[in-house]
Design a protein around this nucleic acid. Structure first.
Length: 685
DNA sequence: GCGGATCAC
DNA sequence: TATGGTGATCCGC
């Protein structure tokens, strides 16, 4: 806060709103950043979104303060020790340097916008954005001159550029053109790694050697061929590893390229003054922290501050930072990996109407079933009207795949959160079959979805749209290793099986199943509720286990372990759990919620059955809790059907992450912000 | 295993 | 009027 004002005395509130939209990006050179910042601020100010952003920023500031305090406490002896640790680590990392590979990163220029212009040439030369009033996927270069850019809401973009033309997304088109580019990529590296529809990494070492030609020449040729095949331009970066190649492709964008020779000195010179934000994996938050705590802005400074990084960050995070300082990252071709989760989420106008919310769940459940997935863990994602994001998960004994099963468990998770006003609901299924083991006594095992590893794919972004078949997907078999590359599924191989379990919505039968294990008193409430509100009450199942065991939840976050960091006031969220069940069981949902949560009303009364047990009766309380838990588990047993789904082939993507030498090999290092503060003072280096 | 967070496209 | 969707990973519990 204090540091933001410097030049003039005039108050400039927008300067403290750290939007990401002013971050340097291709095509944003001549942009009046201050104006963009001001407009974004003016358009955002006062909104729920804005308030949430401010809360997040305040939280980060606290984290930074906390870290600075810790750094300041390091003694000379500590620093001496960590300096040795850092020096040793740097030597070890340096020994892994491999300058024998030549990597090329291709990045299509304003891809979606360029494709749209191809199909509608009248757009040429005019500021245009692909997306909607809510969100822009991509803007052409004419629009970027106004500060319009991807991830910016359309209504703000229009303010920046009143003549902006909006074109809705059409992934079918983008996929088609993406495939054309990939056919070209394939000629240079059949194992190329597609990072998205418009980005790919190619190991061109062999091509260069085979044709006695330079990386620069290959890049020129490839870009020329892409243009011939598609009419689109792209930019390329050539470097000894993927991390650097990615950075390089951005340098002369659009329609340009940059080559970093496979030379140690050249790499170090290049990396030295490079802003850390250019590195894939270092985003807005990490940048702020490294800058705010250590004054690190360039990659070079990563090495200079090595001792501090080793002292305050986890081993893997420190490793990542140091390797960035050395310009290392991604030289070999990783193996293809299986997708680990599938999800579906939808934003809508905020509502607290439970019936509507369950309706959304139904739709999502149906979507998930179509994916042909089968997993054990179901995660419900919620975004409140105030933009707070929460997730609630359950891991089941059995694999589930039918929309009914998904909906049933998802409903249970949602129920525990009511009442609540939401603007987004999402479902994710994970814990696929991959795990070696067979779950003992689980008859549904045979129903595990089969996965087929294959190449390419890119994420579908923007507005919803199912990706379409791609005739190319069989060609490239993408793989990857230290650097994960996100491959999208083209779903070319799957067959559509009729779903034998098409029953929809929660039925009365479900309700009865559930009720059977609940005591009479609560049945009344349920009947009352189901007639009144929604078909919401299904069985209460898995949720309990967790909730009964650890009544903490949100409270836990505010808890003391991180005592020095205070959480922002929970604003006005009518949160369950905050309000004591002060016996006034007035509203319907209230009683329903409490049904699943065991805690001691007024300090001694069981919230579930009213039994009275003073806090000194520790063991008795535990037994009592176990009793309710058993009750729930029993219910759960009878609840899960043995529905199965015919295995279906799917192409598997992999994650991506720019190009880092972390992950895989050394377990990685994305630096979850929390990790910055949690590193035990007792280092294990 | 769960939940919050960060990141990338 | 209005601030996305999908997938991965990390860390502390």
């Amino acid at each position: 806060m204090e540091e933001s004002e410097s030049a003039s005395d005039k108050p400039r509130p927008w300067q403290s709103y750290h939007t990401v939209y002013t971050n340097a990006k291709a095509g944003m050179d001549g942009v009046d950043k201050e104006k963009v910042q001001r407009v974004v601020y003016e358009m955002s100010k006062g909104s729920k979104y804005f308030e949430n952003e401010e809360r997040k920023e305040a939280f980060i500031r606290q984290k930074i303060e906390h870290m600075r305090a810790r750094a300041a406490k390091l003694s000379a002896a500590d620093l001496s020790h960590y300096q040795k640790v850092a020096d040793k680590r740097i030597l070890e990392l340096e020994s892994t340097r491999d300058l024998s590979r030549i990597w090329l990163h291709v990045d299509m220029d304003a891809f979606y916008a360029a494709v749209e212009t191809l199909s509608n040439p009248s757009l040429k030369g005019k500021p245009m954005a692909v997306g909607s009033m809510s969100m822009i996927s991509t803007a052409n270069y004419e629009a970027r001159k106004f500060g319009v850019r991807a991830a910016m809401p359309g209504f703000i973009a229009r303010k920046l550029c009143p003549d902006l033309i909006f074109v809705p997304t059409d992934f079918k088109k983008y996929t088609y053109y993406s495939d054309l580019t990939r056919k070209v990529f394939w000629d240079y590296d059949p194992n190329f790694m597609a990072a998205s529809l418009d980005e790919a990494y190619l190991d061109i070492t062999k091509v260069c050697e085979g044709r006695s030609i330079t990386g620069a020449e290959i890049a020129e040729e490839l870009r020329s061929r892409v243009h011939e095949e598609t009419g689109l331009t792209c930019s390329a970066g050539v470097a000894p590893n993927r991390l650097l190649a990615k950075v390089c492709s951005d340098i002369n964008k659009p329609n340009g390229q940059f080559v970093l020779p496979n030379d140690h000195m050249a790499v170090m010179t290049f990396i030295s003054s490079l802003p850390i934000r250019k590195i894939g994996g270092i985003g807005k938050v990490t940048e702020n922290i490294l800058k705010g705590v250590f004054g690190i802005s360039t990659c070079e400074e990563m090495l200079q501050k090595g001792s501090f990084l080793c002292a305050l960050f986890s081993h893997s995070s420190a490793d990542f930072f140091l390797s960035v300082g050395l310009g290392l990252g991604g030289t070999d071709t990783p193996e293809a990996r299986f997708r680990k989760s599938i999800s579906s989420e939808r934003t809508f106008s905020a509502t607290e109407d439970a019936a509507l919310l369950y309706q959304k769940l139904e739709m999502l459940s149906a979507d998930m079933q179509k994916e042909g997935l089968s997993g054990r863990t179901l995660t419900l994602k919620l975004k409140t009207a105030s933009f707070e994001v929460r997730t609630r998960a359950v891991t089941l004994q059995k694999y589930i795949s039918s929309s009914d099963d998904i909906l049933k468990h998802a409903s249970n998770l949602l129920k525990a959160e009511l009442p609540i006003s939401l603007r987004l609901i999402g479902l994710r299924v994970s814990h696929f079959n991959e795990d070696k083991g067979v779950v003992p006594g689980d008859p549904t095992q045979k129903t595990l979805t089969t996965f087929l590893i294959s190449g390419d794919a890119s994420r579908r972004t923007g507005d919803d749209q199912r990706s379409l078949g791609s005739d190319l997907s069989d060609l490239h078999f993408i793989s990857e290793k230290e650097t994960a590359i996100s491959l999208d599924n083209n779903e070319t191989c799957h067959h559509e099986f009729g779903d034998p379990f098409e029953r929809k919505h929660l039925s009365d039968i479900d309700d009865k199943n559930c009720i059977s294990s609940i005591n009479a008193c609560e049945m009344e409430k349920i009947d009352e509720l189901s007639s009144n509100k929604t078909a919401a009450m299904v069985n209460t199942a898995d949720v309990k286990e967790r909730t009964t065991k650890s009544p903490k939840r949100d409270l836990s976050r505010v808890s003391e372990d991180d005592s020095s960091i205070q959480r922002e006031p929970e604003d006005s969220n009518p949160d369950r759990l905050n309000k004591e069940p002060s016996t006034s069981g007035n509203e319907e949902f209230f009683s329903l919620n409490q049904m699943e949560m065991l805690f001691w009303v007024d300090g001694y009364k069981c919230s579930l059955c009213g039994a009275e047990l003073p806090s000194s009766f520790v063991e008795e309380r535990q037994e009592h809790s176990d009793f309710h838990l058993a009750e729930r588990l029993q219910k759960e047993e009878s609840g899960t059907g043995s529905s199965s789904l015919i295995p279906r082939l799917r192409i598997v993507p992999k994650d991506y992450s720019g190009s880092q030498n972390r992950r895989k090999k050394h377990k990685s290092a994305h630096l979850p912000i929390d990790s910055f503060f949690t590193k035990k003072s007792s280092r294990q280096l």
